[in-house]
Design a binder for these strands. Structure first.
Lengths: 155, 155
DNA sequence: ATAATTCCTCAAGTTAAGTTGAGGTCAAGA
DNA sequence: TCTTGACCTCAACTTAACTTGAGGAATTAT
């Protein structure tokens, strides 16, 4: 089945630079939906190259697979996505990106104040009250997340 | 042992807003190094409050535990860190932060170009060659990371 | 036609950053 | 004193994003 308009998983892997295993994994996450041959082998459309490339870029931007999957669901499932389809999604990403940059910038400004005072002392220092809304893309205590009570107030 | 100048793990937990389990975990990572009582219970110094608070803030900034640990090793181990000690580290963080913001901003600019062309087609689109140096804080294929070959060049 | 690839499906392993629980010891208040 | 409540250790579970490996079937190359 070589030289068809569809691609085998290996060919797609080569085209995108992804590992075969990664593509299979992405399939389970709904990022691509190949058809199967009689014998059960996956067959991808050429448009899937772009889908996956988009996934890579989106990850670069800091989006999780599930966030990306959510965005991609807005792509047409029947026809191959058009330029306009991708543009719409990209614009959405731009918004998130703006927010993240803003969050980090705000944080940096507070850090500056903090370098000035050298403190890191609660109450006085803005840093400890900084982790608001914006960039909750963070790690930190997992099951505590979202209800960190009061931080220390002493030096 | 209540009312000493040292703190029990529970007291430290309350002061920092961390879970007791998290503090024990941080100890295994070398972020704090409490002494033990005769009976084996941990005793923390007041300065550990600040150490842990710093960890929280650093995580907010997007640093991993091991990165934070690396920074903290520069803190004096014998005496309690001074204002100057913290300031030095904060300045270091500021550099990293700058780099990350720059990286994201550059990425955003390329995205803008991309929205314009709606393409996401390799060669023409800068996005695919964007993931350079700066913000390799990303996810993406783990064991491939660092040697992604060539991305597709077709539409 | 046969060997070498490629592909398939599971199941299980990996890292980060913690959490949860079991089983047992220690300390503080009634 | 006795009984909670705080601690201790150690092992196992959690999520995300994949990889690795085992055991087999289908393709492709010679």
């Amino acid at each position: 089945m070589k030289g068809t308009d569809t691609l085998s998983i290996g060919e797609l892997a080569e085209r995108t630079g992804l590992a075969v295993s990664a593509i299979r994994f992405y399939e389970t996450k709904g990022l691509v939906a190949p058809v199967r041959t009689e014998s059960g082998q996956r067959r991808f459309m050429r448009a899937d190259i772009r889908r996956l490339s988009f996934v890579l870029v989106a990850q670069e931007f800091g989006f999780s697979i599930s966030e990306i999957a959510a965005q991609m669901e807005k792509l047409p499932d029947n026809r191959a996505p058009t330029k306009a389809d991708w543009t719409r999604i990209s614009r959405d990403f731009r918004k998130h990106l703006d927010a993240r940059i803003e969050g980090l910038t705000a944080l940096r400004d507070k850090l500056d104040g903090c370098i000035g005072c050298g403190c890191l002392s609660m109450k006085k220092c803005q840093l400890y009250n900084a982790g608001d809304a914006a960039n909750r893309h963070g790690r930190g205590p997992r099951y505590l997340m979202g209800d960190r009570p009061d931080l220390p107030e002493e030096l």
